[in-house]
Design a protein around this nucleic acid. Sequence first.
DNA 1: CTTACCATGTAAGGCGTTACATGATTCA
DNA 2: TGAATCATGTAACGCCTTACATGGTAAG
Lengths: 176, 176
Amino acid sequence: MILGLLSHENMTGYEIKKRMDGSLIFLGGASYGSIYPTLNDLVKRGMATKKNSDENKRNKQIYSITDAGKEYLKQWLNFPVEKDELRYETLLKIFFGNSAGPLQAIEHIDAFQKKIENGLSTLLVMEKNLLHHLQEDSTHEYYLLTCRFGVKTYLAYLEWCEEARNYLSEHDQEEK
Amino acid sequence: MILGLLSHENMTGYEIKKRMDGSLIFLGGASYGSIYPTLNDLVKRGMATKKNSDENKRNKQIYSITDAGKEYLKQWLNFPVEKDELRYETLLKIFFGNSAGPLQAIEHIDAFQKKIENGLSTLLVMEKNLLHHLQEDSTHEYYLLTCRFGVKTYLAYLEWCEEARNYLSEHDQEEK
DNA sequence: CTTACCATGTAAGGCGTTACATGATTCA
DNA sequence: TGAATCATGTAACGCCTTACATGGTAAG
């Protein structure tokens, strides 16, 4: 992922982290404790270079991808996908929800729904922006596809939230 | 998750692994190298007991949840969700797809679609079974909700696959 | 009789997080 | 001037996987 980001533009470790925690959170995050060592490893392996920006006294390291790095990235992209993994604790808590009862489950669904609604509105803004700037850069088309994936799945999640809540509250009434 | 499984029925480590890799793969898997030590840890912490089944000469250890384990599980279920994480390598490869081009991206989408179609048909079978046996056990209602989540999201994925493939193949023609 | 599956566990190692340590700059 | 943000890194630790090591049983 870091190599991919560097293929789009030169960045510092700090900026990479921000990107991963921000608009790309959808693709997965990372901590400084993994970003900086990875970056240095990429340099060691000849896939990136590190330049000290002297713009300020700030100790700012700007990383750039090399041709070898681009080649490696292309190879990785070419390679079949190994792992697609969804790990939703919410889902686990719903699955074992019988131990705690419907009210607990509904609380988890409510919390989940709020998170998803927030994520969705972010994605919709991104989508709009991408549609505006599609012509500028062909990478934007791929961003858009990823974004659309998010929009569609989040809409499905929200439908599920409604359905599940209705199901559980009906069941809860029967119990009384 | 192991504690949750034990709350539903007594099991061996081997059975737990099979369950996690089978119908519950949706909730996440685990290796023996994490299951057996966890099981022993649960025993050490008084949350489960281990009984040697003497049915055969087979060295079969059957684990059961204790009251303390049930209590701990309930507390965990009560606790707010900390992490819902989706890590789809497919998505990452689509996002950086510009480096490899639309044909590569379409290949990843095709492979993804096949995986999802398989998963969906499994989920639909599960759903049917659950609907048949809903009355028997109230845990089934929670299984059904989880299953419905899968069905809905997988359908959304498949819609996305169509959309993305169309988008990319149009774009590919323009390039020629 | 041998292949596949049942069954349990340990050891080494990889990967990533959290916490720590440090310091500059910007803005209110 | 103090808080927030920019900025980089290391060390300890936890968690998990892979690979190894071992053996029983069922079915063809």
